[in-house]
């Protein structure tokens, strides 16, 4: 399986060196690409100076646009799978080989690096949102996703095309629900995540609430409106 690690990065100058050195150290067998999403700090200069493989977006497209760029690139370069790793070093790349092995072994379309498969979800405000989205997905698709908001997702080749072209596809829980409804085979793999060390997360409390409402609305809404059939990569 030819796997590409996609790292969307918006102003991650401080965290990127750590992410990349960890990738090179722990999983040198995988190709990776950084998507510089119109950063205003030295992210581009860093990538050039260090010779990191990167795609430079001239304007800021947001996480969805940046991720889609990575998926399109993977589709065009003939990769079979894409895993998203955040540019803030939250995700430990050491889990990637096991997640890829799980995908191949069980012929899956989606493997989520999940914080709560064997470990219990802590009862915090933040995790209440996670539980709510999980519930919405269970009600609408009948399938259980313990950690729908995890950003560490491995997508197989059957769903890559849809992610690359579909207008409403994005690296968020609503798209996970949509894929599941289209018959995608999904499993979760227990991972540990780290807190981000430098820089600020783009979700403060108000934004998290808005995000949650939006996700739940989309999950119910998509369930009701969207077509069921999903597209696949051409020629596969």
């Amino acid at each position: 399986m030819k796997l590409l690690v996609v790292i969307p990065a918006f102003n991650e100058e401080e965290n990127l060196p750590r992410v990349i050195s960890e990738l090179r150290e722990k999983v040198p067998q995988y190709d990776f690409v950084i998507i510089n999403d119109g950063s205003t700090d030295g992210t581009e200069a860093l990538c050039r100076a260090q010779g990191y493989p990167f795609l430079d977006l001239p304007a800021n497209l947001g996480l969805t646009g940046a991720f889609q760029t990575g998926v399109r690139y993977a589709c065009e370069m003939g990769y079979d799978a894409v895993i998203q790793i955040d540019g803030d070093a939250q995700h430990d790349p050491a889990y990637i080989p096991d997640m890829a092995a799980l995908m191949e072994e069980k012929d899956l379309d989606l493997v989520i690096g999940s914080r709560f498969v064997t470990e219990k979800r802590p009862a915090t405000m933040r995790m209440a949102g996670n539980a709510l989205i999980s519930w919405a997905i269970r009600v609408t698709t009948g399938k259980t996703v313990m950690d729908p908001t995890s950003g560490m997702r491995l997508y197989g080749r059957r769903v890559l095309k849809e992610l690359a072209v579909e207008l409403n596809a994005r690296p968020e829980p609503d798209t996970v629900a949509q894929l599941l409804r289209g018959g995608a085979r999904m499993e979760e793999y227990q991972v540990r995540m780290r807190e981000r060390e430098k820089g600020e997360s783009y979700l403060d409390f108000g934004a998290s609430m808005l995000y949650m409402v939006q996700m739940c609305m989309n999950i119910f809404f998509l369930q009701w409106v969207m077509k069921k059939e999903s597209q696949t990569c051409p020629g596969q």
């Binding site: 579909e166 207008l167 409403n168 939006q214 989309n218 809404f221 409106v225 077509k227």
Partner: peptide
């Protein structure tokens, strides 16, 4: 509007 969303001609956020 719902038909446009269904046919992927409009983003869900815009339909709201």
């Amino acid at each position: 509007v719902l038909r446009r969303v269904r046919n992927s001609r409009m983003r869900t956020g815009d339909s709201v």
